[in-house]
């Protein structure tokens, strides 16, 4: 049995409404998170695109940086797109910037160039048999991934969609297309956790430590079965 997951979207600045619209297409009504209190009862968080410097200042000012780290340690699933990816990365360069540091990756901000380098690409991913449309806007490049990080998709030789346990990271914007594949994948990650939480799983604490208790093979298989049924 699946427990319905409560999804929160960080709504301090950026395209949080685009994420809400994507979730609405999947029949999910998210809550907007602006203060630590808003995190109560939330199972999974989306950190949207936007300006990471602006967002980070808000997180620190509101104490949300601490709350989100605790949320992750409790086993909360987190999905970051573009600026959200920057907030999640352990190392951020160009310029160097503080972050939540929850995923073992190093990022270079605005690495493709300024807005003129923004573009739409199409790449194959293991999430679907169809190519996935990827909208890159002043996007960062993932320069290094740690041993616990699984690269799900690459573009131009760079990782663009990666996962570390309960953390999913895209340097592009799946919320700016009509394709819900990546959000569905994140929901599976979140639901697996909610299921474990319902069972009061003593291992849950480990989930936030970066250890992948539910392998992506498991999740992929799960998605396949869901699609078939």
């Amino acid at each position: 049995m699946e427990k319905p997951v409560k999804i929160g979207i960080l709504a301090v600045q950026g395209d949080f409404e685009a994420h809400a619209a994507t979730l609405a297409r999947l029949g999910i009504e998210p809550v907007f998170v602006r203060t630590p209190r808003d995190l109560d009862g939330v199972d999974a968080m989306i950190l949207p695109g936007g300006e990471s410097t602006t967002q980070w200042k808000f997180l620190v000012e509101e104490g949300l940086d601490k709350s989100l780290r605790e949320f992750s340690a409790r086993g909360g699933a987190i999905f970051g797109t573009c600026a959200g990816a920057i907030l999640l990365a352990r190392e951020v360069h160009h310029p160097d910037q503080a972050s939540l540091g929850l995923a073992d990756i190093a990022l270079i901000r605005n690495a493709y160039g300024r807005q003129l380098a923004s573009e739409v690409r199409s790449e194959m991913t293991p999430l679907s048999s169809e190519p996935l449309e990827m909208v890159f806007i002043r996007a960062p490049i993932i320069q290094r991934v740690g041993p616990d990080v699984e690269v799900l998709a690459t573009s131009q030789g760079q990782p663009v969609l990666v996962r570390q346990g309960r953390i999913l990271i895209a340097t592009f914007h799946p919320e700016l297309t009509s394709d819900t594949t990546v959000h569905e994948y994140f929901l599976r990650i979140a639901q697996t956790g909610a299921f474990a939480a319902a069972e009061n799983d003593p291992l849950l604490k480990l989930a936030g430590s970066g250890k992948d208790l539910w392998s992506s093979e498991h999740t992929d298989d799960y998605i396949r079965r869901q699609r078939e049924s």
């Binding site: 301090v12 600045q13 395209d15 409404e17 695109g49 807005q115 923004s118 806007i137 700016l176």
Partner: peptide, 14 residues
Amino acid sequence: WRVKVGLAEMLKGG
């Protein structure tokens, strides 16, 4: 057009 409007989307709420 989509990447133009996309950047505008990123500036929302700011």
